[in-house]
Every structure is written in C-alpha cells, then in structure tokens.
Design a protein around this nucleic acid. Structure first.
Length: 281
DNA sequence: TCCCAGGGTAGTC
DNA sequence: GACTACCATGGG
C-alpha cells in the first residue's frame, strides 16, 4: 500500500469526480473510493491537499493527471472573452481531466448515448458485478471493469437483462471486435486526434460525440469537444449560437478554444449542470 | 401523456 | 452531403 499527497489549488476531488467524466466512484467516510479498470484507490481532500491511498502510485499519478500544469489551462479560460467561460472556469477551477482506462471509456460511453448519468452508473455497476473480477482493496470489496474478452462471451439478451436497451447489440458487436483483435485500442496512440476519431467512429454504436468522449477521457486528446444535449443548450443560450449541425458546433468550439477545448468543455458542462441542480434544490 | 437524457443507425433523397 | 423515423428505459 502506498500513500502520497498532492497539493494544488487546481485539484478539487469532488468537482473532478462529479463533472461527468467518470462513472465508477463512491463516497466513503470523508473521501472517495475510486475505480479504474482493474484498480482502486481512496482519496481524501483537506484544503488544497489531496491524499491518495493505492497500490500503484504511478498509475494513479497519471490517472489524476498530476504532472500537467493546470494553472495555464485555467488561466486561458479565465481570460476568455465569453462571460460563461470565465464563470464556469472559476467554479470548475479544480477540475482535472482524468486519464482513464481506454476500454472502460469506450464501453461506458457506448452506454451513455441517449441516457442519463445516474442510469449509466447503475448499468456499469451491474455489469461489473455480473462480469468483473472480484477484488479487495484496503478492506473494501469491489468488482473490476470486465475485459472485452469477458464481455465478448455474452449475448444480446444478457446485456438487455442488465438494462442496456437497444445498446445491447452494440456491446456484443464491439466487445467481440476488440476481443478478436480486429480492433485494437492500444495501436491508436500515435494517430492524430482526427484519425483516432475516424477509427473509433468505425465501431457500431460509436458516433461523433461518443468518439469525442473516448478521445478526451481515454486518450487525453484535449483538442476534442464532445457536443451533447447540455453543450447544445449552452451553445444556444450562452453563446447565442445559430448552428444546428452538431459536428459544426464541435468545430466552432475547437476554433475558439484550440488545444484547451476539452478542459473548457468540462468547465462548461459542469457549470450548466450545477446550475440546473441548484435551481431544483 | 409527452418530454428528456453526456446519441447513433439506417434509410431516403 | 442533409433529413428523419426509430431505437429501450426510467424520471419528471
């Protein structure tokens, strides 16, 4: 077991976890239990300092993206000519884009299409319990995210019984393509973001938006800008945007925010959803 | 009852 | 290329 601390005004654990990029974590006394692929860690924040307990320090240093300069990213957004970008980057100052498991991101965001975050979490949780390897970390039992090889042994009805709905057939197809090595997620690192997305979109159930999310959260391609229904709403309401084609909206944001696009997207997404929650409470 | 959710596919033109 | 019906499920 290893414990390490990271001190930064640009790391807020709760905001990083709640901003919609990760689906497997839960609150424990005073902190969080976080899962990624096969691994787990515990993380606690007090003030500017986050304490992380894990069995694989190198993995979680990379997972939390601790070697990147987030001051530069946040400053870029704070200097934006758009009021909404300033506000959202102030609220989300401590958001970091996690470096998550590529397979897990691919399957998670296939599930995400036309779905709701609490329901996505529930489906993933049921999938891990049904198929994932049972593990114990620091006294906590958990189930790893199942490999494509294991997912590929299941039929469509199995996924439907877990609540996948019409996405069940995508899971069957994609898991079998990966398990049979017809599609290899580990050979895509050297591709440009454009070519990476082209490869991802070739998979059944993966369109532009899902590919953007996998590129951003699995490959850390910050020159990605996923446009979902929330971002579409922001584009219309807060940027007075007139485009209707989602691919053109993505391109417009990429033109505005360049290599910082992915970070700004998360600031905006979190801000808009936080407002909605606040209004409901 | 209709509308919405971190949308995508397949068919049509 | 753009447009559209349809796709499961659950919450509001």
């Amino acid at each position: 077991m290893e414990t390490f601390e990271y001190k930064s005004e640009y790391f807020n654990l709760k905001d990083t976890l709640d901003c919609g990029q990760i689906f497997r974590y839960k609150s424990i006394n005073g902190g969080f239990l976080i899962f990624s692929g096969d691994f787990a860690c515990k993380a606690y924040q007090s003030g500017d300092t986050v304490k992380i307990i894990c069995e694989n320090k190198a993995y979680f240093e990379n997972f939390f993206d601790l070697k990147r300069n987030y001051r530069e990213i946040n400053d870029f957004a704070l200097l934006s000519k758009y009021e909404i970008v300033k506000k959202s980057s102030t609220l989300g100052k401590g958001i970091r884009i996690l470096n998550q498991n590529k397979e897990e991101m691919l399957f998670s965001f296939i599930i995400s299409q036309n779905n709701m975050i609490p329901r996505i979490k529930a489906i993933i949780e049921r999938t891990c319990i049904a198929l994932g390897e049972k593990k114990v970390f620091d006294g906590e039992e958990y189930y790893a995210f199942p490999s494509a090889k294991v997912l590929a042994t299941c039929d469509e009805q199995f996924f439907k019984d877990l609540g996948y709905g019409y996405r069940a057939k995508f899971m069957v197809e994609v898991s079998r393509q990966i398990a049979s090595n017809k599609f290899n997620l580990r050979c895509l690192d050297d591709l440009s973001t454009k070519d990476l997305k082209k490869q991802l979109v070739s998979l059944k159930g993966v369109g532009e938006k899902v590919a953007d999310c996998v590129a951003l959260f699995g490959f850390h391609r910050a020159d990605s800008f996923p446009v979902d229904t929330w971002i579409e709403k922001i584009y219309k309401e807060d940027f007075n945007g007139k485009l209707t084609d989602k691919k053109k909206i993505t391109d417009w944001f990429l033109g505005e925010f360049k290599e910082f696009s992915g970070y700004v997207q998360q600031y905006l997404f979190y801000y808009k959803r936080s407002l909605e929650k606040y209004e409901k409470d």
